[in-house]
Amino acid sequence: MEILMSITVGVLFMVGTYLLLTKSLLRIVLGLILLSHGAHFLLLTMSGLQSGTPPLLNLNSEAYADPLPQALVLTALVISFGMTSFLLVLSYRTYKAFKTDDLEQLRGSADE
C-alpha cells in the first residue's frame, strides 16, 4: 500500500510540476493544487500506513495507529484550502484586470 501511495505522490508531483511550468494562470493554480495534494499524501504516507485502533487507552488494543500524521494532514489541508481559495480569487481578479491569463503578458517590465 505504501508503494502505491508513493507512486500516487510521484504522479501528483509530476503532473503538478508540469502544470506549474505552463504559461496559463489557471493551469498554474491547478498545478499548485495537485502539488499540495501530493504533499499531503506524502505526509500521510511517510510514517507508514497503519491499521490500528485510535490511540485511546480504554480500547485495550494491541496496535494503535499513529494519530499525528492525520492531525498534521488535517491542519495542512485546512491551510491549503484557504490558500487555494485566496489564490483563485486573486488570479480571477488579475485575469479581469489584465484581460489575459497568459503569463508572458503578465510578466511586466522591470521599471515602471
Binding site: 499540495s36 504533499a39 499531503h40 506524502l42 505526509l43 511517510m46 510514517s47 491549503s80 486573486l90 488579475t94
Partner: peptide
C-alpha cells in the same frame, strides 16, 4: 501593478509552503 506582482509572490510562497510540508513529511 499590485495584482500582477502579488500573484507571483503568492504562487512563489504557496510553492514554498508545499515544499515545507513535503520536507516535514521526510523529517517525520
Amino acid at each position: 501593478y499590485q495584482l500582477r506582482e502579488s500573484l507571483k509572490y503568492v504562487v512563489m510562497n504557496i510553492f514554498a509552503s508545499i515544499l515545507f510540508i513535503a520536507t516535514m513529511a521526510f523529517t517525520y
